[in-house]
C-alpha cells in the first residue's frame, strides 16, 4: 500500500506537466498565424494621447523579416509620409519637407506618429519563435477564451524586450494579451487583442490595443481593415527610390 502511494505521488507532477503543451510548439503555432513571407495590409491607427485622439490610415507592404514599406494615407497632414525598413535600417520620408531621414540611434526609441509603438518595435523580428524561448507557466481565461500563459525569454542578445508574458488562445493560437518587460524586469508595454478574424485558414488580430506603460495616455488602437497573405509584391517597392514616388 505504501509503495503504491509513493508511486502515485511520483507520477502526480508528470500528470500535471503533461497537460501543458510545449512552449516552443505554441510559439510556432502563433508564427503560423501571424507570419507570412509577403503581406499587404491596410490598417487604421487610433492614437488616444493625453489630450486628443487622432486617427491615421496606412498601407503596409512586408517582405520576409527584413523588408517593409508603409505609406500613411490619412489624415491630410500625414498623408504621403512613408517609412522603409531594410534589414536594420529605417528611413522616413516627409512629403512637406521632401526629405528622407534615416532613423538611427536614440531616435529609434521615439514614438511612431505619437502612438504607443516605437520605431524599435517596428524593426523587431516578426517570428517570435526565432528570438524567444518559451515556458508554459499556467492557464487563464481571457475574454472568455481559454489561454495558456507563456513566459518568453530572449535567446538572442539584441532584443527590445528581454522577457515577455503572453496569454495564448488555446484554440486560435493568438497572444490575446501580452506584457513586455525590459532588462531590469520593468513592465514597459502591454498589448491586448480585442477582436480576431479568420483570413483563409489563419486567425489574425482585427483590433489590437497597444499601451506604452511609461507614457500618459489611453493607448493606441490598431484596426486591421484588410490583409492579404502571400501577396505578389514587386521588389522595387522596398527601395529608397520608392519613398519619393
Amino acid at each position: 500500500m505504501r509503495n503504491l502511494i509513493i508511486t502515485i505521488l511520483m507520477f502526480i507532477p508528470l500528470i500535471i506537466f503533461a497537460e501543458y503543451p510545449s512552449g516552443e510548439m505554441l510559439l510556432k503555432k502563433i508564427d503560423e498565424n501571424m507570419y507570412s513571407e509577403n503581406i499587404i495590409s491596410v490598417s487604421t491607427m487610433i492614437i488616444h494621447s493625453r489630450r486628443a485622439t487622432k486617427t491615421m490610415k496606412l498601407k503596409s507592404w512586408k517582405n520576409g523579416d527584413n523588408s517593409s514599406f508603409s505609406e500613411y494615407l490619412s489624415p491630410p497632414k500625414n498623408a504621403g509620409t512613408k517609412m522603409l525598413k531594410l534589414d536594420n535600417n529605417l528611413w522616413i520620408y516627409n512629403p512637406q519637407a521632401d526629405r528622407t531621414i534615416r532613423i538611427s540611434g536614440h531616435m529609434l526609441r521615439q514614438s511612431v506618429m505619437g502612438s504607443d509603438l516605437s520605431y524599435e518595435d517596428m524593426m523587431e523580428e516578426d517570428e517570435i519563435s526565432k528570438i524567444y524561448q518559451a515556458e508554459v507557466i499556467g492557464e487563464e481565461v481571457i475574454n472568455e477564451a481559454d489561454c495558456w500563459i507563456l513566459m518568453l525569454t530572449a535567446k538572442v542578445a539584441d532584443v527590445n524586450y528581454q522577457t515577455r508574458k503572453i496569454w495564448v488562445d488555446k484554440t486560435k493560437y493568438l497572444a490575446l494579451r501580452e506584457e513586455r518587460f525590459g532588462k531590469s524586469g520593468k513592465l514597459l508595454k502591454t498589448t491586448t487583442i480585442d477582436e480576431v478574424f479568420l483570413v483563409g485558414k489563419r486567425w489574425y488580430p482585427k483590433k489590437i490595443m497597444f499601451k506604452d506603460v511609461l507614457k500618459k495616455g489611453k493607448g493606441t488602437e490598431l484596426i486591421i481593415e484588410s490583409i492579404e497573405f502571400d501577396a505578389n509584391i514587386p521588389a522595387s517597392i522596398f527601395s529608397k527610390a520608392s519613398l519619393r514616388k
Binding site: A52, N94, A97, R99, M113, G114
Partner: peptide, 16 residues
C-alpha cells in the same frame, strides 16, 4: 535647412 522634431501629438515632423 530642415528642422526635424515631433508634433504636439508625437508624430515626427520635418519642415524646411
Amino acid at each position: 535647412i530642415t528642422l526635424i522634431g515631433s508634433t504636439m501629438y508625437g508624430s515626427m515632423a520635418m519642415h524646411n
